[in-house]
Write a protein that binds this DNA or RNA. Structure first.
Lengths: 116, 116
DNA sequence: TTCTTATATAACTATATACTCATGTATTAT
DNA sequence: ATAATACATGAGTATATAGTTATATAAGAA
């Protein structure tokens, strides 16, 4: 396998890594209906301000979200419309439809096939 | 956010976590054209036998692949046909098409939209 | 049985990262 | 200028995990 491939796999792995954290999924889910500032995201996610800020920074570095500073507040939103496909897959109503012990994978993959 | 949601996010995050590792992506990519045994996967991935075995076990626990023991060999394959969609997204020819410094994210998301 | 091949796993190390607490910085209001 | 609000960030801790090395297990061959 070429070094080119290796780099590709590293890139893609990092992409998934950004999505591999419950708090970050919560945050992305919270951004589904439009931009929110940090305080709002803290409330939604039941996290601490410091921790949410860090996750936001990581998501921004991963190009999943973008930041716009207005006054004293920082508004975050999905960076790229194309990401909505993924955000739908990951954060959609699936979460609500799922029973606690039903495999999340099932719902997730099912949605991947049918939602497009 | 309900505890139900929390559980869902945890499940989905674990799912992504399984994909968030270059070696595991290599392995999954190696399985695209059908089952392979451990030795073959070791050769493909340029990993050590012990390490590949561990990744295979993790992928199996995540239900991404399945194992079939025949004789002294263990053959692994994609566990669920539905996972091919994802495997396509992640491990497809994109890797070859990408230049080393081009953002992997771009190619990945583009494929998500067009590849179905 | 003994040897070889194929795979799994235990012990260990190194690194990454999620989290908390405290503090820094920037913007607006008084 | 001072205070208050909103956010970011550094230091430190705890945990998870990728990797190596060495060993265990299991099946087939000699």
């Amino acid at each position: 396998m070429s070094q080119l491939d290796d780099q590709a796999f590293i890139h893609i792995a990092k992409y998934f890594q950004a999505l591999a954290e419950p708090m970050r999924l919560k945050i992305l889910n919270g951004l589904r209906d439009g931009e929110k500032n940090v305080t709002e995201l803290v409330e939604i996610s039941y996290g601490t301000q410091a921790n949410v800020s860090k996750h936001l920074n990581l998501l921004r570095e991963s190009k999943l979200i973008k930041r716009e500073s207005r006054g004293t507040k920082a508004y975050y939103s999905i960076a790229d419309q194309r990401i909505y496909e993924l955000c739908n897959l990951v954060c959609g109503q699936i979460a609500n439809q799922m029973s606690a012990d039903a495999a999340a994978n099932e719902a997730f993959i099912f949605t991947l096939q049918t939602n497009q």
